[in-house]
């Protein structure tokens, strides 16, 4: 096969980091298909990236230590000291209760994202005969169908690094929009779901919110007019790693 421009090391890393144009990405993938050694190298780099997340992502949910915000705050001006104190309170509240600062926003997000995501998780992960509408083995069909219905480019995140395989997914009615649900299962049969829907009225933030209800943990966030919710019966720490991988894979798709 001929390539218009040769594939460089930079191309390979940019491919890995999701930084190539669609056209170039296809070229690199075609090239990799013919170069198994390079593909193996890229897979190792992927494993390194996910390993770094595994090593360090727990810092994202850890409570902020007091001494970080208090120790030297006396030296600062009063106004700054007030901000520093507020930071301490903000973080504690944030992770202790896991909500938005505005109760109006919180209510909207609960109604449109967290509640429906949790319920959909409950309904379908407990369904023995038909947990998914389209199976994970038809991933391409599943993703293109859901993308078309939600009018955006979706993807089913690769969670194999966390031991989860894609079981499949389905289209769901949410409160006032359509939603997509992807379901994953690990070797022990634990299931997690990713629920995605459009939420136009809430600003993006780089924060994961946490909610626990009826034994189901949910980590959720808002980004570029979409709400994402990862739910499961697994530990918060495990869920965070899944959420972080998901966030990363969506975030770096452009």
């Amino acid at each position: 096969m001929m390539y218009e421009t040769p594939i460089t090391t930079s191309d390979l890393h940019a491919w890995l980091d999701g930084r190539l144009s669609e056209q170039r990405q296809e070229m690199v993938e075609a090239w990799l298909a013919e170069h198994p050694e390079a593909l193996r190298e890229m897979r190792d780099y992927q494993a390194i990236g996910l390993g770094l997340h595994t090593l360090y992502d727990h810092k994202l949910v850890e409570p902020i230590p007091d001494r970080l915000v208090i120790r030297r705050s006396r030296q600062l001006s009063q106004r700054v000291a007030a901000v520093v104190a507020w930071i301490g309170v903000g973080i504690v509240l944030h992770w202790a209760f896991g909500g938005f600062n505005s109760s109006e926003t919180q209510q909207l997000v609960d109604e449109q994202l967290v509640g429906p995501a949790r319920f959909a998780h409950y309904v379908y992960t407990t369904d023995k005969s038909r947990p998914v509408e389209i199976k994970g083995s038809d991933e391409r069909q599943l993703v293109s169908y859901l993308s078309e219905r939600l009018r955006t480019q979706l993807k089913a995140p690769d969670l194999t690094a966390r031991g989860y395989e894609l079981t499949g997914g389905r289209l769901l009615p949410s409160t006032n929009r359509m939603a997509a649900q992807f379901m994953y299962t690990d070797k022990s049969g634990n299931r997690v779901t990713l629920y995605i829907r459009r939420i136009a009225s809430v600003d993006s933030e780089a924060v994961f919110h946490f909610s626990k209800h009826d034994g189901i943990n949910t980590l959720y966030w808002i980004e570029d007019q979409f709400g994402y919710a990862v739910s499961g019966g697994v530990e918060k720490h495990d869920l965070l790693q899944i959420a972080e991988i998901t966030h990363l894979q969506f975030h770096t798709k452009k």
Binding site: V61, I87, A206
Partner: peptide
């Protein structure tokens, strides 16, 4: 107050 959101990332 927006800085707050980034503290966990800075810590990581």
């Amino acid at each position: 107050s927006k800085i707050i959101e980034f503290i966990p990332r800075l810590r990581r």
